[in-house]
């Protein structure tokens, strides 16, 4: 199924990827080709086959409720693009 430039723009917006029209046009062609490849899946009948989301058939391991991680804020914020008073800074958020 070919993908339109508009669809690319929508997905790019959903994925927060800035994209100018030329780039969207370029990706529309490439994504259409990839989807064409992907749609070869439809050649195989999967009726009645249970989806497999994980290579293991293991159950989730549950951890004891213990605090073992302690404050490392200074190390973590040393690599932050913008932090002040211990807070990460972002442009004003309006709810």
């Amino acid at each position: 199924m070919p993908i339109t430039r508009e669809q690319v723009a929508h997905i790019a917006r959903l994925a927060r990827l800035a994209m100018d029209p030329a780039e969207a046009e370029f990706h529309a062609g490439q994504l259409s080709r990839i989807l064409e490849l992907v749609e070869q899946m439809n050649r195989i009948d999967t009726t009645g086959v249970a989806p497999m989301s994980h290579p293991q058939d293991a159950a989730l391991r549950l951890r004891d409720d213990r605090v073992t991680e302690h404050n490392r804020r200074d190390q973590y914020q040393r690599i932050a693009p913008a932090a002040e008073h211990g807070l990460y800074l972002v442009p004003r958020v309006i709810e």
Partner: peptide, 16 residues
């Protein structure tokens, strides 16, 4: 495994 308690200094309980 970081603490859930309320009222700590900002991001001091924000582990990796």
């Amino acid at each position: 495994a970081s603490d859930t308690g309320y009222g700590a200094e900002p991001n001091t309980r924000a582990c990796a």
